[in-house]
Simulated assay, not measured.
Amino acid sequence: MASITTTRTDPSRLAFGSIAVDPPVVLAPMAGITTSAYRRVCRQYGAGLYVSEMITSRALVERTPLTMEMLKFHPDESPRSVQLYATDPAIVTEAVRILIDEDRADHIDLNMGCPVPKVTKKGGGAALPWRRELFRRIIRGAVEAAGGRVPVTVKMRKGIDAEHLTYLEAGTIAQEEGITAVALHGRTAAQMYGDHADWDAIAALVRELDVPVLGNGDIWEADDAIRMVEQTGCAGVVVGRGCLGRPYLFADLANAFAGSTERVRPSLSQVAHTMRQHAGWMADDLGEQRASRDFRKHVAWYLKGFRVGSDLRQRLGLIADLADLDRQLDLVLDQHGDQAYPEEILGLPRGRGTGLRKVSLPEGWLADRDSSAVPFGAEIGISGG
């Protein structure tokens, strides 16, 4: 990665409109992960901006029950940041108006980077910027609907694959249409979450634009965020998989951007306390049975690297309720003691990695870059990804 000698934007002064993002850290929207409960768990470790799960514009306009439930923010959550998925300029315009007129959001982010096949095969997510005129109309519709009342940002990837890159042109279009900031994940849709993120692409976008550019990809530790800012000149960072099971990473990030070398390394008992807190807040929002089921996927992330027997891991992955969670965590501590944080896992990737794959696209999608037609069936009616 080439080193950049000057930083164009002072990360200590990042703001989206009137919203100061200090430290310059954003929690990436992650389907099924960045619920209100998890956002609150992360927020208590440090400031920054914590974005909701993806809300589909169509589902918001149709006011589906799941979507309206996902749009609920706890009173402790401020500012309220919502990510919108959009493929139709008219529908995103109406969705933004609803969010603002009904005082449901203080910041709106547009999802133009989702690489999931069920999204790209309909022309949405990371596939959409290829249709540059449609991309422009969606950005314009959202920004005009916001009318300066809340900031609108966009998150995207480098492009569809190495032969179909879009990020420089899409970033320029977004800036021309009045977007507040652009976040770039330094991978293509074809890469999904494999290989290494291309920080040089982030640096190139920083040089191309005047609005703040945030970098995303391969931030596993706080020092990675500092390196990204130094090497690319980006105005801030977006953290996704690096915080899975590690909400305290936001404390490390706050310390790092403040110039402190202090880092949080919780013991097993402290991790167990956070797990109980997280599951309890989920139960408050979702009800105990549903929360217990949804929490199971977090168990392996929280316990990564700790010496915990496979039998107990399996039991924790099948918890029936909060009392069961308490029993299993008590057994973990009784049988394995209060272990120190496993330093050997620092810097290792979290979440599922993937190899290079062919991106699913609508038939003829690559043939006409200037078509502004809304792809058939791309307006997904279910929020969350």
Rank of each mutant, 00 (worst) to 15 (best):
F376I: 14
W199V: 01
L322I: 06
Q335M: 13
K122A: 12
V229D: 02
L209V: 03
I173S: 01
L346Y: 00
R293Y: 13
T34F: 10
L333M: 09
K358P: 02
I380M: 13
E62P: 00
V211W: 07
Q175H: 04
L346I: 14
A254P: 00
G215K: 06
L49A: 15
D210G: 13
K118Y: 05
D103K: 15
T6H: 12
P117G: 01
Q44R: 15
L286Q: 15
D101G: 04
G147D: 10
R315H: 13
N255V: 02
R263A: 04
G113E: 06
V238C: 09
E62H: 13
E363T: 14
H298T: 05
L60T: 08
Q314A: 14
N255P: 01
E221R: 12
T153V: 06
A190T: 01
N216Q: 06
D218G: 08
P129C: 02
A197G: 07
Y85W: 11
A256S: 05
G242P: 02
R246G: 04
V61Y: 11
H336M: 10
I382C: 00
D284I: 07
S292G: 10
L253E: 05
T354V: 12
R104A: 13
E343D: 15
A300D: 11
D324V: 09
T5L: 15
A183M: 11
D200Q: 14
A162D: 15
D311E: 15
L348E: 15
L128K: 03
Q314V: 11
A105E: 08
E343Y: 01
P79L: 10
D101K: 11
I345D: 01
H107I: 12
G287W: 08
I179N: 01
A86K: 10
A291D: 02
V41C: 12
A291E: 02
N255K: 07
L361Q: 06
F257K: 01
R104G: 03
F250D: 01
G364I: 10
E163T: 12
S3D: 13
C243T: 11
H74E: 13
H196F: 11
A323P: 00
H74M: 05
S260Y: 02
D88F: 08
P29I: 03
K118N: 08
D223V: 09
S81Q: 07
S269C: 07
P151C: 07
A47S: 15
A86S: 13
S383L: 04
D223C: 04
R149V: 07
L71F: 10
L253D: 05
W301A: 14
R136D: 03
G351K: 10
V26G: 06
D76F: 06
P11F: 09
T188H: 11
G317E: 05
R131F: 03
Y193R: 11
V229M: 08
L99Y: 12
E94Q: 15
F73R: 04
E208A: 14
I138Q: 11
D76R: 14
H273A: 15
A258E: 04
D109F: 11
R136N: 05
P212Y: 05
W130C: 04
V92M: 07
G233F: 03
A367V: 14
A189G: 06
C114E: 05
A95L: 09
G159S: 02
A203I: 08
V82E: 08
G236Y: 07
T35G: 06
